[in-house]
Design a protein around this nucleic acid. Structure first.
Lengths: 186, 186
DNA sequence: GTCTATACCATGATAGAC
DNA sequence: GTCTATCATGGTATAGAC
């Protein structure tokens, strides 16, 4: 029980630090400081740093899945649900402006490292893609549903990257408004 | 003269490696191997790794500026020029699929490191932004020119990130086609 | 201008005491 | 299950010979 507790704390701290500092830039010492354990004690829970990464990705996948189920129940219409997705850019702005999109930035970092878990990381994108596709299907855009899902995904991803680079909340707000208007025009 | 030659070689090798491996993951040893000089010899040309980064960013800014001037002369119409920009996604696909967009990935990495040169790096985005704005102004979209420029920038950035994550050339091709069609409809 | 040698530190990882 | 001590490696950076 205590083991599970510590393990969980390690994953939680690593999840946060991998997002804010990047995977490679985060050391065991960084995580140990947050969790308040010694560096050596890590290896009782994980055999390597890569194993921690896998656990973090797994946690993100589960968290994302839960969030999408919640959104499924929250939003009255498919449009409302997609707008709920678009609004993450604004609700998470304080993080995005400093650290970018958690999904996209991990994928690109792992791609450059040619890391074995890069495909696993991109599955988070796939979760959003399938969920968005489902919403567009409900909207009656059956044949184009996947294309529209990818369109929304790319749009939000690009806005997150540029919003981060220019540190410009007004721009992001304008873009989200535009995206919502485009949605209503479908 | 030989000094300038070596310095130039270091910047060129670092430019390539920072793109393919990321800034932090690239060591002096990596660059030294390419340039074929000793590690110690670096400090005759640069005081620190950050100085090499600044030189790389400066080189990228100049290269981008030259490229945009070339495109200015190449394309007959503003649409043709913007399409020239969009097609980078396809002409540079072999690099993008493995390493993402050179501009966006550096900006996000430096943002996470909270690196002092992150604003300098995002100036490459600004170059594209102003150039695109100019093209849209020539197209007669004066009031919306900057918004449209940012729209194209975000669009291409998002497609690069997703294309990289999913390693899907067909998707990128479809998106570029869609972007070109949207351009013609303006 | 280039080299070798080296200092110094942080990293991921291991071994073994408690 | 947690700790301390330790290791090998590789990082940035410096000093000084040629």
């Amino acid at each position: 029980m205590a083991q599970r507790g510590t393990r969980h704390q390690i994953v939680k701290a690593a999840d946060d630090l991998f997002y804010r500092q990047g995977f490679e830039h985060t050391s065991f010492a960084d995580i140990a400081k947050v969790v308040n354990i010694s560096r050596g004690n890590f290896y009782h829970h994980f055999k390597s740093k890569d194993e921690i990464l896998d656990a973090v990705i797994e946690a993100r996948l589960q968290r994302t899945e839960r969030m999408l189920v919640d959104w499924e129940e929250e939003g009255a219409s498919p449009q409302d649900r997609i707008k709920r997705y678009l609004r993450i850019l604004l609700t998470n702005w304080t993080m995005i402006k400093d650290y970018g999109c958690p999904v996209g930035t991990l994928c690109t970092e792992l791609a450059k490292l040619n890391h074995g878990s890069k495909d696993e990381a991109s599955k988070v994108f796939t979760l959003f893609r399938l969920w968005l596709k489902q919403q567009f299907t409900l909207l009656g855009c059956r044949d184009e549903a996947d294309g529209l899902a990818l369109h929304v995904l790319a749009w939000s991803q690009g806005v997150a990257t540029l919003g981060n680079a220019f540190n410009d909340l007004e721009y992001v707000t304008r873009e989200v408004d535009k995206m919502c208007a485009w949605l209503d025009s479908l």
